[in-house]
């Protein structure tokens, strides 16, 4: 599985005639973790849905760097965990295989649950799990799909600070080597996880020039310079990404 890079070429989207964003250009380097920030309502979720192929853009196109179509190579992790309430954690992890009518690989699903530290909860239903555990099952389900491109829409925003830091470490470790686009409102998360970031803001929204972050993710929460990076990012956010 060689992950492709992703290119957004002149993407535009309108709802009821009003432009949400237009003329978006962005290149995601293959195998890197890229972070998208921006004020509420800027169109981040809409952009992610377009890349995931869930919605067509009104203008422009999304292309993979290897020229092959992206469809079928992207997995999507939303803000809600979207676990099936009637199914066990294990069966939730294997949802993709079930829906495609493929043979389900319970051994691999169990191994993924072990990776996210939930072996002992494999047969629990989502209602019996904590918020952090549910997000870990969702992460295992995303990994079970084994797609080279992973899109994440604020997946950890509903978690407490400690759980969130743990989830970030887990995601960074398990998603390493894939092309990842992560939406977050949290500058700290962006600075810990990203190879680079950009900001979507304005009306209609535009993308700021991407900023590369020094060093390699995941950066430790107390790493020198993280605080400085965060301050820098906050300033950019406050200036509307300019």
């Amino acid at each position: 599985m060689v992950p492709p890079g992703i290119e957004l070429r002149g993407l535009g989207l309108r709802y009821a005639g009003a432009a949400v964003f237009s003329g978006l250009h962005l290149t995601l380097t293959a195998g890197e973790f890229f972070v998208l920030l921006g004020p509420s309502g800027a169109g981040k979720t809409s952009l992610l849905r377009i890349i995931a192929g869930l919605e067509p853009p009104d203008e422009g196109l999304v292309a993979a760097s290897d020229g092959a179509p992206l469809a079928g190579r992207v997995s999507y992790m939303a803000q809600q965990d979207l676990l099936l309430p009637w199914a066990s954690a294990l069966n939730n992890v294997m949802l993709g295989a079930t829906l495609r009518g493929q043979l389900r690989d319970a051994a691999r699903a169990a191994a993924l649950l072990e990776e996210v530290g939930l072996t002992h909860r494999a047969h629990a239903r989502p209602a019996e799990l904590s918020g952090g555990e549910r997000q870990r099952v969702a992460l295992a389900r995303t990994l079970y799909e084994d797609r080279p491109v992973v899109l994440m829409d604020e997946p950890f925003s509903s978690l407490d600070a400690i759980t969130r830091v743990r989830m970030q470490d887990l995601a960074a470790r398990l998603l390493a080597g894939r092309t990842v686009l992560l939406i977050t409102h949290d500058p700290f998360e962006a600075c810990r996880l990203g190879h680079g970031f950009t900001i979507l803001s304005g009306s209609p929204a535009r993308l700021a020039a991407p900023t590369r972050l020094p060093g390699l993710p995941p950066r430790a929460p107390d790493e020198d310079g993280i605080l400085h990076l965060q301050g820098e990012l906050l300033r950019q956010l406050a200036q509307g990404g300019a």
């Binding site: 999507y76 939303a78 993709g96 829906l99 495609r100």
Partner: peptide, 23 residues
């Protein structure tokens, strides 16, 4: 949200009905 997730997973129409919409 579940329907979107199922779409990114390339669910077939019948499996979608049987394994997701029905339950």
């Amino acid at each position: 949200g579940l329907l979107d997730l199922a779409r990114t997973m390339n669910a077939s129409r019948l499996n979608l009905l049987l394994h997701l919409r029905l339950p």
